[in-house]
Design a protein around this nucleic acid. Structure first.
Lengths: 204, 204, 204, 204
DNA sequence: GATGAATGAGTCTTCATTCAT
DNA sequence: GATGAATGAAGACTCATTCAT
């Protein structure tokens, strides 16, 4: 009769350990479904079932199906940004190559960990309204990357950042899809591509 | 998204021009919906409506919803492969750089044309069973790319092909998403990345 | 994912006789449920079942449950206003008493016809957003009643109209609830109450 | 709205003042929800929240949701009957008009106090099984009204009582809905209607 | 061939109620 | 006694697909 507003947040964040286990179980169940079946097969009944909770319980924590996706996506990004921030902060004295070395390692590990999940969430983000915190995290990431490149005198740092991010992500995803195992070798190839990219003759 | 009868083909391929117009109208309507709303919002009733035909007519041409997607995906790939094949065939004498130059141009044009559509179909392909002809086209493409690289003495040509394809695709998509307009500049950046990649010190 | 706007109208009004029968069957089924079970028991599955159609069919015609209620309510009001308008128009030369005589007759007939239905819809109107056409019909009714009273020099015609309407309605409902059968006698009592009301000493 | 166990009573009547406060808080929260949102939006979780108690506590006092409604309804009726009984008892020597004067005043005050609440409870009573005590109170009220009218030689006293009750109630509700403020004027109009009603030529 | 009314399995979501802590 | 996490039956609504006209 009345319209609920789209809540951008879980209905309640768990405070006790029982709740927390339930909350996490729901997210993990959703993640597994996304990995094996994709977005289209994600339905709340299935999530609840795989999480071993009742459908009612699921809705105590998540007001809509989308919030589950948003929370999952948020966690992944938060996790990545945390690691990347740490690398950039701790390695300010290092050469750009060394910093990239680290960043690529982290990115490979993250995407190899659950490549299909990353892919689905990435797709979902494109068609779902981005939740504010998530958008913020994305902006932060871009800002830091730009700052890093600027500090190393890379021209057009925004575009360069975007390009290298896209490049790395594309190669990692393709490798993961092809079930390539050797992360070292992959990292090496990415670094070469990046070096080539960075050493390009400056436009004017 | 799961199949009842895995009919790999439209019920009938249009032979007369009136039919053909209907057939195409349905595909185009589906494409537009995918671009603006994404996979989740693609439904046959809406497609029929936007195509200006009745739902009954739609089902005369396409036995299931998935076949619409498959046909759309197939057309895109067939289109791209056709162009790429032509380039590779016609430029056998050219330097690798010149061939790549052309390939990148084609890829940029294709993806800039309907970037969201390309993205959605790509995602759909990952979770839908690939139709035989489509899988075949993909294999063909990979084979030709490998052959090209082999002919130019690139080591690990399969992997290199995959990497460069992924790299280019990632950069183009990111640029399209950011609504970058200058295709020339984008092509240049991709070429530099590729050159860097190819000039990497050989492993051993 | 996206929010549907509250449609104030049936999704489609029937044009062919098959549709019309379905449309009416749904409304009639809803009316019967409201009469026997009340608003709380009105659910779309039950309505569809009693109407002998599938749930899908119901939703082809009515986008939400509320629209069924609104349409029912609208029909009742439209029906009553039509009759009342005719009386007021055709009896302009008559005494007020004679006009009231007629109006009371119509009101009794309407409310005795389906008293519980009238009651439920009245209640629903109080808590549901009034649909524009319905609000308009109500305003029309009040306007005409006021005009009638004004033409007969009744002071405070708006208030008098409201009072007499409420009075009549209250008495008719109570009589219907008590299963009183003699409509003549009831009409007589209402007329006396109204005469008493109208013959009151004017304030000042 | 259907009953599992037709417990006609709250689980426990509060004896200590702390309990009583909780009991009352629950009822008051329910009343406020009924006023602002109507029957459909009354749900136990919301009641508990607005009452500032846990859902568990609510169920310690009220075994089902219906009992909350029943208790609320009962209180209102008990309250009114008490006042009306007192008037009838204390004014046995007065003229009928004077007694009515008082009764109307009380009725107006009651209904103007919380008109929407009165309306909702009235509606609920029509579709909920009447709890025995409440039915008894209603019978008592009718009996006393009939006795009063009989004592004053009004013919058909049951029907007359019903009519006048309905009339008054209808007018008061309509006035409350229209947010009429002047209770004196309203009372006067009701009295005139009643006088007209009572002074009607006797049938035969 | 085309139409569009009809179907019903499938999903999302709510809310009365229970019960372990 | 109080709490609030958990339950699951029930109800709103969608959409792929069929089939009578």
């Amino acid at each position: 009769m009345t319209f609920k507003k789209p809540l951008l947040e879980p209905r309640k964040r768990p405070t006790q350990s029982r709740s927390e286990a339930t909350f996490d179980a729901i997210l993990e169940a959703a993640a597994r479904i996304l990995e094996s079946e994709g977005l289209n097969s994600l339905n709340t009944n299935l999530v609840a079932e795989k999480a071993g909770v009742s459908i009612g319980t699921l809705y105590q924590y998540f007001p809509t199906k989308e919030v589950i996706l948003a929370e999952l996506s948020l966690r992944m990004r938060r996790d990545l940004l945390g690691k990347i921030s740490a690398i950039i902060e701790n390695r300010k004295k290092d050469t750009l190559e060394e910093v990239f070395n680290q960043l690529i390692k982290v990115a490979i590990d993250r995407l190899f960990d659950r490549p299909r999940l990353a892919r689905v969430l990435d797709y979902a983000d494109a068609f779902l309204p981005l939740y504010e915190e998530e958008a913020e995290i994305t902006r932060q990431f871009e800002k830091r990357l730009t700052a890093l490149l600027t500090a190393h005198n890379i021209p057009n740092p925004e575009i360069a950042g975007r390009d290298m991010n896209a490049m790395a992500r594309g190669m990692i995803e393709a490798a993961a899809k092809a079930e390539e195992m050797d992360r070292e070798a992959l990292g090496l190839r990415i670094r070469h591509a990046m070096n080539g990219y960075l050493s390009r003759p400056r436009k004017g």
